Amino acid sequence: MKRAFILLLDSFGLGATPDAAKYNDTGANTFGHIASWAAKNGTPLTLPTLENLGLGAAAHAASGQWADGFAQRDGFAAAYGAARERSTGKDTQSGHWEIAGVPVEFDWGYFPRTTPSFPAELTARLQELSGVPGFLGDCHASGTDIINKHGDEHVASGKLIIYTSGDSVMQIAAHEESFGLERLYEVCEMAFKLVEPYNIGRVIARPFVGSNGKYTRTSNRHDYAVAPPAPTLLDHVKNAGGEVIGLGKISDIFAGHGISRVVKGVDNMALFEALLKVSDEAGDGSLTFVNFVDFDQAFGHRRDVTGYANALQEMDARLPEFIAKLREGDLVVVTADHGCDPTWAGSDHTREHIPMIFFGPGVQPRALGISETFSDIGQTLAHHLGVKPLSNGSNLL
């Protein structure tokens, strides 16, 4: 019996890639800077489970430096390394698709860092089709900041909050109760069709609740995404008869392609609970792919170093529960899709190496070095499951 699991810590980068200067990210290091910050503040970052699997050594291979609190040693329990992205962007879709064997070697469209960010003809047409009285924001922004800034006016006027980021994305925020969740989804579907000529990867519905300047986003987020341009690991597994279980936003990122079952969760720990349940249920030939989104959306983009550090320690403390459930023939990889250094300027992703930490009952611990494409991860899992090889990547095990 063979099963595969991808545990993706969204935005957990291990240090800038050689091409980071193109993205103004030279020196970015999500993991290293969090560890340094924690040490300087008298609260050292402690990740005993991940450290035992080789995280510190993988980060050293990527950045050339040992993170504070992670010293050189031997005797790791996993096959560990890091990977560089072949795709041209540093966005969510590119990272996930490349892991699954389909690098994005075309350029996404992006909205400029101006106010307004969106073309007037786009917003005028969306207003005409949706019937909303207008828009608020229309700029590059942090999602949590912009809903608190414009939430009161949105509730009072019915104008939608629209914003973008360094990703190829249009985000539309609305109050679940005063505006309506289904109505928000309908507007986002309209917008998704309208942004096609601009080569935009996603339109994201960002519902929120609350009142009087104190608003919180809900778990009813929905991404309307362009489909991958070629079959991915998910398609290969599903076509071979294996179940593909997408936890969190995985189904949205792949536009539903190759997905057998969708499992949602409100935050990292809810998704971890779902992972434990799925690990009991998943059958032979299955692929379970979970995105732990809080690292990125709740802490990375918000430049919350304390929150990021605490979330890493919380995840590390619970990983032994999952490891205890592994069976003979299981292969797990802990990885990421890009960086989002919470000490870096701005609020966008950072161009960084990602971890590749493979473990399971049959995995021989060793150093894997640096891969030149994230697709080595997907190809390794395809080989393990015995499905059709991917068009990109090499088997590392």
Results as ranks from 00 to 15, higher is better:
residue 243 E to C: 10
residue 39 A to C: 11
residue 353 H to I: 01
residue 100 A to L: 14
residue 163 Y to S: 04
residue 14 L to A: 09
residue 63 S to P: 11
residue 195 V to C: 12
residue 65 Q to I: 10
residue 274 A to R: 11
residue 140 H to G: 06
residue 190 M to I: 15
residue 150 H to V: 08
residue 310 N to W: 08
residue 289 F to K: 01
residue 324 A to M: 10
residue 17 T to G: 03
residue 193 K to A: 12
residue 288 T to S: 10
residue 383 H to I: 00
residue 93 Q to V: 13
residue 328 E to K: 15
residue 314 E to R: 14
residue 46 T to C: 14
residue 248 G to Q: 05
residue 196 E to S: 10
residue 219 S to E: 14
residue 115 T to D: 13
residue 360 G to L: 08
residue 16 A to G: 03
residue 393 G to F: 09
residue 373 T to D: 05
residue 347 S to V: 12
residue 230 A to G: 01
residue 120 A to E: 14
residue 334 V to Q: 00
residue 47 L to T: 11
residue 209 V to P: 02
residue 392 N to G: 05
residue 389 P to A: 08
residue 234 L to I: 09
residue 61 A to Y: 07
residue 208 F to Y: 15
residue 160 L to W: 08
residue 82 A to M: 10
residue 122 L to P: 05
residue 114 T to G: 10
residue 216 T to H: 13
residue 286 S to H: 06
residue 166 G to L: 00
residue 134 G to Q: 07
residue 328 E to Q: 14
residue 246 G to P: 06
residue 114 T to C: 09
residue 141 A to K: 02
residue 125 R to I: 03
residue 152 D to C: 09
residue 188 C to K: 07
residue 390 L to C: 11
residue 111 F to Y: 07
residue 255 A to G: 04
residue 271 L to Y: 07
residue 19 D to V: 11
residue 86 R to D: 09
residue 335 T to L: 02
residue 169 V to R: 02
residue 275 L to E: 01
residue 250 I to K: 07
residue 308 Y to F: 14
residue 151 G to R: 01
residue 65 Q to T: 12
residue 197 P to F: 11
residue 102 V to M: 01
residue 323 I to V: 10
residue 25 D to A: 05
residue 132 V to D: 09
residue 361 P to S: 12
residue 292 F to Q: 03
residue 163 Y to V: 05
residue 371 S to F: 03
residue 18 P to A: 03
residue 70 F to V: 03
residue 92 T to C: 05
residue 262 V to I: 15
residue 116 P to R: 08
residue 360 G to T: 13
residue 167 D to C: 00
residue 165 S to F: 00
residue 358 F to S: 03
residue 270 A to Q: 14
